[in-house]
Write a protein that binds this DNA or RNA. Structure first.
Lengths: 238, 238
DNA sequence: TTCGTAATTATTGGATACAATCCTGCGGTG
DNA sequence: CACCGCAGGATTGTATCCAATAATTACGAA
């Protein structure tokens, strides 16, 4: 008997879902009344969910003006991937020696799930499976805070990952690279896994960067009417 | 003319302050009504501030039971410092080559502030100055997300840093180590700075670990009456 | 027109009121 | 005496209402 989840957490999941799936695109304003109605709750739990997304950097709040889905600059993107490389390498090297055969097979199963989703061309499912696959390895490092930081970094680019998976060449490359990683993983060859993983990430960042450009062009060409007031006042301390 | 800050942000700062200064100790329950009254606001903005602290890991929420100041296990502590070592080394190596003479003198000034606070035996001020000093360097790396992650990691142990500075030998060692770092920094010797910084951190983790033990003893000896319900049900997914 | 300025409206921020949940302690029962 | 079950009170979660702020429009003078 599952005890009832709070509205905040339901809304939080829903918001995350809508951001990764692109329903809420980067730069969009999040009007509280509208969203509250859509999710069938009042504004209070919605705002609490937004606060969590804000402190994760998924969403930006301009006091008295509202919440906006965070935009990613190219610099931001590169920074995120750089930080990921630092932390993911550490996670892999910590995790791999601890994996037993059963663990590896579990991971392999997750890998298959990705391929299935890729074949079915279900982008959202593929993104989710991909995440489970990678985090199954990271989490095995047994460092919960590390996992948490990595989740934040992944979240930051989720909005674009959905677009990324929409192109079939990307999907195919991802599957191939995962297969290679599984080979190295079965051999417990940490160096090889880290190397492949770095390459995998490098391909990813290149593709997402491309997506980012397209997005920026899109928003500046079409509706130049009304946009998020450029990320300027990030700090304002005494 | 500063435009009026929102209640949430005021409360957020106040909560942070009360956590670092030890007014709210690890494991304490945060009763909403009580805190709201103390800060002179209603529960709504208070809860929003708590949500932010929650997603930073400063505070833990048990649905329908309340918010508690996060406890740190020794494993947590070690993990935090390990992650700091990864990220801070990267920040330093990125930052140091970019610093010009004026930057260095600014940092030196911050270093002096710490010493002043140490002499005055003002623990809270010292902790604050120490933070400014270190983050002046990290921030110079020009990677806002990196700075943000580091802030989170520092926050996680803030509750104990206050205790740490209360012992005068700790204060003196900190000052001495900072002086050494400044010498290496003036010489633009990145390797030396990183090395000294690592040592500095190692001393700190040892001392904070000691504080942590004392804290755990204190809470288990004295009031074993009513404590945070041991971090157990962290996940409970369908 | 164009600029500045005042009313209007939409949206957010905060406070209060109500509902749901959980802890506590009491009394009954085996 | 241990063990349930069940009020009663305390605390959290949510909805509704009101106040404050900012965007927008309308208007008038240079």
């Amino acid at each position: 008997m599952n005890r009832k989840a709070t509205a905040q957490s339901v809304v939080l999941s829903a918001l995350r879902e809508d951001i990764v799936s692109g329903v809420l695109g980067p730069g969009d304003q999040l009007v509280q009344e509208t969203l509250a109605e859509r999710y069938g709750v009042s504004r209070v739990p919605l705002r609490e969910a937004l606060k969590m997304l804000e402190s994760e950097g998924q969403v930006i709040n301009h006091p008295n003006r509202g919440y906006f889905v965070a935009e990613l600059s190219v610099d931001d993107l590169r920074e995120v991937y750089y930080l990921r490389s630092l932390l993911e390498d550490a996670a892999l090297r910590q995790a791999i020696p601890t994996l037993d055969d059963a663990d590896i097979e579990d991971i392999a199963a997750l890998c298959d799930e990705i391929d299935d989703a890729a074949l079915a061309e279900d982008v959202v499912l593929m993104a989710a499976a991909n995440r489970r696959f990678h985090f199954a390895i990271y989490d095995a490092a047994g460092m919960p805070r590390l996992s948490r930081l990595l989740r934040q970094l992944w979240d930051a680019t989720d909005a674009f990952r959905a677009l990324y998976y929409q192109r079939s060449p990307n999907r195919e490359r991802v599957s191939a690279e995962h297969a290679q990683m599984m080979v190295a993983l079965r051999a417990r060859d940490s160096d090889a896994v880290v190397q492949l993983h770095d390459d995998h990430r490098a391909h990813s960042v290149a593709a997402v960067e491309d997506m980012l450009m397209r997005h920026h062009n899109r928003v500046t060409e079409n509706d130049s009417t009304f946009r998020t007031p450029a990320r300027s006042s990030l700090q304002e301390n005494p």
